[in-house]
């Protein structure tokens, strides 16, 4: 199948989903406050007093901020673990244990520690999504052909050269698969944070509208959250294309 035909199919599937949603609601006669149609939801976007712009901005900041922090800290940690096997032996199991702690359940504690606002939510997003990045990047960094190491050592490559010329570029495909998982988690993390402690953001907005049974606005908020996540995922895919796929699928 050609690439463009693939895009077309993907697009049609999305359109089809929206159409099914629309007609399912219309034909079943479900009341609007239970399930709005896509058009009902879209109409909410033009209510000026909802301050969509602010909410979108805040949530986007939290998602992208938390994710970027996770990417930076995650890669740094993976590098540290590779360079210091002792740190790896001690800290990796600890990290696995800490990762088992449900971060969602920790969110109320974060509120006590960090207070309200964008930064605490960023940090909640960060804690949820940084672990897969550490794990996959570490794996990518250590997964090097031993013979390749021998080959470069035969011309006396130092540790830094092995790291920059072989390990780091070799770990990129792993890093990106970790980042794709993390992108999904970052959105969840930011929204959980907003649920618990925020006066702004789409998650906070969602809760406020729930009190008024304003399902249309809730669904619209959900759509916008999804779009933010999709945008982040798109950025990751684009970077992956530039740094990895472009070279590996070269025709």
């Amino acid at each position: 199948m050609g690439r463009y035909r693939g895009y077309l199919y993907a697009f049609l599937a999305h359109v089809g989903f929206v159409l099914v949603w629309h007609f399912a609601v219309v034909w079943s006669g479900v009341p609007k406050f239970i399930m709005p149609t896509p058009l009902d939801a879209l109409r909410e976007l033009f209510e000026p007093h909802y301050n969509w712009g602010t909410h979108i901005w805040v949530t986007t900041l939290e998602v992208f901020g938390g994710f970027t922090l996770a990417a930076v800290v995650g890669v740094a940690m993976a590098v540290l673990f590779v360079w210091l096997p002792g740190a790896n032996a001690a800290l990796m199991p600890l990290l696995v244990t800490l990762n088992m702690v449900p971060k969602v359940a920790m969110a109320p504690l974060f509120v006590i520690w960090l207070g309200f606002g964008i930064v605490p939510n960023m940090i909640i997003a960060f804690t949820i999504c940084f672990f897969p990045i550490v794990l996959t990047t570490y794996r990518g960094l250590v997964e090097v052909e031993p013979e390749l190491i021998n080959l470069v050592k035969s011309v006396r490559a130092n540790r830094w050269q092995i790291f920059t010329k072989i390990q780091l570029p070799g770990s990129l495909p792993y890093l990106f698969s970790g980042m794709k998982v993390a992108a999904v988690l970052a959105v969840a993390g930011a929204i959980v944070g907003e649920f618990i402690a925020s006066d702004r953001g789409l998650g906070n907005f969602l809760l406020i509208q729930q009190n008024m049974l304003n399902t249309g606005a809730m669904v619209m908020a959900l759509i916008l959250i999804t779009l933010i996540g999709t945008a982040l995922y798109g950025v990751v895919l684009a970077l992956e294309w530039v740094f990895v796929t472009r070279k590996e699928v070269a025709k």
């Binding site: 052909e145 013979e147 390749l148 021998n150 080959l151 470069v152 035969s154 011309v155 006396r156 490559a157 050269q161 010329k165 072989i166 570029p169 070799g170 990129l172 740094f243 990895v244 070279k247 590996e248």
Partner: peptide
């Protein structure tokens, strides 16, 4: 460390580098 060239059973080429850049690797190091 200067006068050794090695070839293994696997080609061990770096897949993110072009063939030319792969060939350059020992000289780069």
């Amino acid at each position: 460390g200067r006068d050794i060239g090695m070839v293994f059973q696997k080609a061990l080429l770096l897949k993110w580098r072009t063939i030319l850049d792969n060939v350059m690797l020992p000289a780069e190091i």
